[in-house]
Amino acid sequence: MEFSTKEFDSPIGDIDGRAKVIAAVALVVSIVMNAPLKPIEFFGVALVLLAVALMGRVRLGRLFARSLVVIPFAGAMALFAPLKLVESWTFSGVQTALSQGWPLMVDMISVAWLSVLCMMTLVSISSSSEIYAAMGRLHVPSVFVMLISFIERYLELFRDQIVTMQRAIVARAPRMSRRHMVGVYGGLAGNLIVRASEKGERVFAAMEARGYTGTMPTLVPPKFGASEILLLGTTLLAISAMALY
């Protein structure tokens, strides 16, 4: 389970997390607000992201593959768009609507993909702890930041437990019916909840014994210098270009 794909230190990776998060979110909002994107806008933003990824020494193939995750989601929802052009619910009516409405579908999918590419680039050039620290410094409630950081910290543990339990089910009841299986999943999940609540209490006791004060420390020092301002300025320019074009 990988939250971040950051593998190398790079000039762009060293920029403060706050600047990176603000730039990424601003770019996504701008992409969405400027939809439908013209081809030049689409390729312009994609090229900017490609440049950022190259500067961040990110594996491009991996980044591209991760960004494709949105296609099934966006594609399914975008299917609705041409259907609103249907005048009569006959085969030819639907066919006509689809032939006329496919640009709508393409617009929706391109915006969704570009937005995900933007977030995946952010995640690729930043470590998860850097993003949590940035969220904290951007005044996201500490309770919430803690919840998110705990998801990463304990997800591996629960994932392993679920996989182990699933294997145990497969090993012990190979011919179970689907209906029965869903019921067994309920027991499995219940077992996990009880374990999680008990583990949570033990975790807190252990953390408090090690001096936990309610906030997770980070090794990334806060800084907001020329490189951060440059990144934000470049983002602002890109957004302005999209808005004014």
Binding site: F150, L155, I162, M181, A189, A196, E201
Partner: peptide, 18 residues
């Protein structure tokens, strides 16, 4: 903290597909 651990668990439980 218990809530946070349960959050991780809910995330993990979303892997249960039927």
């Amino acid at each position: 903290v218990v809530m946070a651990v349960l959050a991780a668990m809910v995330f993990a439980l979303q892997m249960l597909n039927f």
